[in-house]
Simulated assay, not measured.
Amino acid sequence: MAPVKPRKYRGGPPPKPRSMPRLAKIKLEGAAYSEHMAKARKNRKPGVTLAGVLLVGGAAIAGASWIGGNLFSAREALYVAADTMATAAGLTANIEVQGVEGQRKTEVAGVVLPDGRRSIVGASPQTMKDNVESLDWVESATVQRLWPSTIRVKVQRRDAFALWQENGTLTVVDAAGERVHGAQPSVYKNLPRIVGPGAGPAAEPVLHALEELPLLRARLASFVRVGERRWNLNLKNSMVVMLPEDDPVGAMAKLETLQARYGVMDRAYVRIDLREPGRVITQARQPQPVAVAAPPPRP
């Protein structure tokens, strides 16, 4: 079969096909653009959009407070406004704490955000970091904000757990009661003290127990070693709690429970004796005599 010869056109190349009508082209391009925007909205990260809305909205509210104020006040107003909007949207912060456990973990979570703020945009990461590092037992902290509602805090705690007072000399000790060489006691004034000969090596169980007893920890001034066999607790209000030789940790936990239920460490007691199992013996403070002015002599 003979090959088909291409058709020849008189006067030049074949004419181009007719272009699409303008109106049809506009409709087709509009439909494609709408489809593209729908996909973009579907794939858009909600945290980024949320952050923009919160920051723009917060900036608008904070701008009004800046007039007549200072830059610090305006910045704080921005965080308060953004926090209010995020909280109203149901985005309460989920605070993850790494590096510590138990009551120390709860303590860190409680100070990350300033009072009254509950969202991821309630404060700057630097402010959160400063809040955590203000705890006297924290060496350092790092803070990450993970959109839309997670704050991750990594804590490195200090080696120092207490100050050991022996023969009039103070040294810093770790959780095992061992001296921390090079640590200056003047830097750790807020740590509890352990007092007496041999108190350092014997302190490990009670120091670990104290970590989980926030009510006692807030009131404790010192552990005093008695006869190198048992402990007394000296509280900041001058009360003395006598612990048993056999189970001082259990007695400390019992004291924490009594404080939570009855507030025993805040009462007018001179001493609480927990040395006998199943018994709590208290000694009340003697009322101080009140001086009464003598009546003036009769004329």
Rank of each mutant, 00 (worst) to 15 (best):
W164E: 04
Q126K: 15
Q288C: 03
V195M: 11
N167R: 13
G90F: 06
Q126T: 13
M37L: 14
N131W: 12
N131G: 11
A38P: 02
M37K: 07
R261K: 14
N94A: 03
N232L: 08
D174C: 07
R298G: 11
M1S: 11
R18K: 10
A291I: 13
V264W: 15
R217T: 01
L146A: 09
F223V: 14
E204I: 01
R217Y: 05
W147A: 12
R285G: 05
A284W: 14
T87H: 07
V48G: 03
L146G: 01
E178P: 05
R104S: 06
S19F: 14
L191K: 11
V53G: 08
L233S: 01
P46H: 07
T142Q: 10
R104A: 10
A260D: 13
Y269R: 10
L258T: 01
R44H: 04
G12K: 04
M1D: 08
A77Q: 03
K254Q: 15
R18G: 04
Y33C: 01
R193Y: 14
M37G: 00
L258P: 06
R279I: 13
F72C: 02
R44T: 02
A253Y: 00
K236D: 05
V97W: 11
A88I: 08
G263V: 00
V132A: 02
E178N: 15
Y188M: 03
A24G: 00
W137P: 00
Y269M: 10
A293V: 12
A175T: 10
D83E: 00
L113Q: 04
A64V: 08
Q98F: 02
M239L: 15
R219P: 06
V195E: 13
N70T: 14
K45G: 10
P3T: 12
A32K: 14
G11A: 00
A24I: 13
R225C: 04
T106I: 09
A268T: 14
Y33H: 03
R157A: 07
S73P: 00
G47C: 05
P185E: 11
G198L: 07
E101A: 09
L210A: 13
L28V: 10
A93Q: 03
A82E: 06
Y262F: 11
G278A: 12
G58N: 06
K27W: 05
G68P: 04
Q286P: 02
E178L: 14
R157V: 12
V97L: 12
W164M: 12
L28T: 08
A81C: 07
Q184Y: 06
R18P: 06
E35T: 03
L220Y: 08
L163W: 00
S119I: 05
E107C: 02
G90K: 01
L78W: 13
P6Y: 02
G52R: 10
S124M: 05
L207D: 07
K105Y: 09
R157S: 10
K154Y: 04
K236V: 13
S134E: 10
R41W: 07
L207V: 03
A253E: 15
R152C: 07
L220N: 08
A176E: 04
M1N: 04
S149R: 05
K8F: 09
E228S: 15
E29Y: 01
V143P: 03
M252H: 09
T257Q: 15
L113H: 02
P185Q: 05
T92V: 08
